[in-house]
């Protein structure tokens, strides 16, 4: 636009050219510099991922030079500190899985039921109060949950099951479950609220009652979102650290008895880093190998959840 404008002005001799000086150096430098600086900021996130991956791979590689990868992945005994040392990750995996399954057994039914209640049943006013309260559950620091598990849930479990120890998977699993309720409920509710009003109207107009609309129309229509929320919650439970460190114990144990003490991958990492492990030792390396396992699992689960949520969003 400016070029043509300028031509006309050249023809008109009386025009004061200074008025039409379209370049402003100071402004133009900022305008060119800022995008570069901002891109640098944005690349920090890429660098973080890069850093995580490189760190884990390098140290894990060193670890696998000493401990064969096969022994690590399929070994059934985890005894890194007490000789004879053994680095089979399965007990840590099974411990993690036990906690996660218990947590999901708590969180998925409760979270889904809460989501249905909030989205289909609750009057607006009730919903406005309950929703933020449930979301507070997600904001409570995990150390607080750890305290809650030790001081309230574990004694309750012990009074019901006499055989339960001070550290047991059940207590930690239940509390992790409570922590992830809002993940399930709020993401599922979002998915259910996204189901168009017109579908509900269609069902009501055929004489459906509320539960029929909720369970036969809304839940199926929102199913992918609900599954995605459950997968994310599952992944969150796997990565949870402080609750399991405090309440589940530190006994690598291949058991499915929820009253036993177990050790999760995360709790092991904490245990080693609390001690004074020298850099370069095999224990130090094991943190990274376990961390790598943890990272890969949660990463795949998160990608999976995003995939489900995206893939099935439109296509009912």
């Amino acid at each position: 636009m400016s070029r043509q404008g300028l031509k006309t002005m050249d023809q008109a001799q009386t025009v004061n050219k200074e008025l039409y000086e379209f370049k402003n150096k100071r402004v133009s430098i900022m305008n060119k510099l800022m995008p570069v600086l901002l891109l640098l900021c944005a690349s920090v996130s890429i660098l973080t991922t890069f850093g995580i991956v490189v760190t884990l791979i390098t140290e894990t590689y060193h670890f696998f030079k000493v401990i064969p990868i096969f022994d690590f992945l399929f070994g059934t005994k985890w005894s890194p500190l007490i000789p004879p040392k053994s680095f089979g990750v399965l007990p840590l995996l099974s411990g993690t899985l036990l906690i996660t399954v218990i947590a999901c057994l708590v969180a998925i039914p409760l979270g889904l039921a809460s989501a249905i209640y909030l989205s289909e049943y609750a009057p607006k006013r009730v919903r406005k109060i309950i929703k933020p309260i449930l979301e507070v559950l997600a904001g409570v620091p995990t150390i607080v949950y750890g305290y809650f598990a030790l001081s309230l849930i574990t004694p309750m479990i012990q009074s019901v099951f006499g055989s339960a120890g001070v550290f047991n998977a059940l207590s930690a699993g239940i509390v992790v479950g409570i922590m992830i309720i809002p993940m399930v409920s709020s993401l599922s509710e979002d998915a259910m609220s996204a189901v168009p009003r017109s579908l509900r109207d269609g069902a009501y107009a055929l004489g459906a009652t509320r539960f029929e609309v909720a369970l036969k129309i809304v839940v199926p229509a929102a199913f992918s979102g609900i599954v995605a929320s459950a997968v994310l919650a599952f992944s969150r439970a796997i990565g949870e650290t402080m609750i399991v460190t405090l309440a589940a114990g530190s006994t690598p144990n291949m058991t499915i008895n929820p009253l036993d003490s177990i050790q999760t991958m995360t709790a092991y990492i904490v245990q080693v880093s609390l001690g004074d492990t020298p850099h370069g030792s095999i224990e130090y390396g094991s943190i990274f190998a376990v961390g790598m396992t943890l990272f890969v699992i949660t990463f795949l689960l998160n990608i999976f959840a995003q995939y489900i949520a995206r893939k099935f969003r439109e296509e009912y």
Partner: peptide
């Protein structure tokens, strides 16, 4: 798209993994 995907993935990385990164880096 890569940066955006990366950010949402990072939000799901367990906090202890950041601890491992911090320790090494």
């Amino acid at each position: 798209r890569l940066i955006q995907l990366n950010i949402s993935t990072l939000a799901g990385v367990p906090s202890i993994v950041y601890g491992i990164l911090g320790l090494a880096l």
